[in-house]
Design a binder for these strands. Structure first.
Lengths: 153, 153
DNA sequence: TTGCTCCTCACGTCACGTGAGGTGGC
DNA sequence: TTGCTCCTCACGTCACGTGAGGTGGC
């Protein structure tokens, strides 16, 4: 479903920081759309937007620790959105329709934001704990410096 | 290597938020120590400290997205540290030794902190992008409200 | 024509999940 | 004794990795 077939699978993979095998696998399980119509055995071709999409998917999966099944659900909620965007960019006159599209977007963004913030909080908690441990260790080291021969427990 | 055998594998798993199978697997690949000496076929027994350790491992793996091999490396660097801690709590008189222990700890903590902060930055970047998108969508919605019949592109 | 990347099976691997059949402690 | 959890194989699964053998475009 690429707009223009400019890129090959290896280039897409490199740009998105993954491998051709992963792209084929994602296509196989329906996470990525089948690129255009092609003869069996012929090369897959992609557009720049496909790279963006894949990059985004990998990022969400990696940072949020989602399974491909969860990622698929998230993306299906967005599937509508992607189509709406195209519609949007085609120029939508009806304000009711415009409002629908925007509200869909907001819902999608909100669900992602919730996942991201949950992760952010967990990470921050871990960071805080580590810095505390570091502070403690450093303080003990300073004690050793200032009272080189004494002991305290 | 548990101090006291108070807990069984199922209890440990539940407390750490995982499954017995995972604990056995971690033991199998050498990520967790073999708990005490036991007859083949006998139950594994664990202490409360084992729960803490496992919880910590799962947290690092999950939040940082480490493979078990990477986790093992991180932990081996800490393996020394765990032993040092016991030594420490046993009461170390030699200030040179105390310094060694503390510096080991600091190195270990520093390496973890670096990983955590890298993740934190990626998450924050993602969060920022999402909030920006949300702001844009909200602003477009407001435009629809204030100018219900007009169009701007 | 020579490389290079691509293609499709298909088996391998990592990190477990999930029964199958049996034993052990409140 | 009855449940419950435990045990050890061992095969299944998810998300790819990795050749094996062959075809296609600069």
């Amino acid at each position: 479903m690429s707009d223009e077939g400019e890129l090959r699978i290896g280039e897409v993979a490199k740009l998105a920081g993954t491998t051709p095998r992963t792209i084929r696998y994602y296509e196989e399980i329906g996470l990525l759309p089948v690129p255009g119509t092609r003869q069996p055995g012929a090369h897959r071709t992609y557009a720049a937007t496909d790279v963006d999409r894949l990059t985004e998917l990998l990022r969400l999966k990696d940072l949020l620790g989602l399974t491909l099944e969860e990622l698929k659900e998230l993306v299906e909620a967005e599937g509508a959105r992607a189509e709406l965007r195209r519609e949007w960019q085609g120029g939508v006159d009806d304000p009711v329709r415009r409002r629908q599209i925007l509200e869909q977007s907001l819902t999608y963004i909100a669900s992602q934001l919730e996942l991201v913030r949950r992760r952010r909080d967990e990470i921050k908690k871990l960071e805080t704990e580590l810095t505390k441990r570091r502070t403690r260790a450093k303080s003990l080291l300073r004690d050793l410096d200032s009272e080189p021969a004494s002991r305290q427990r």
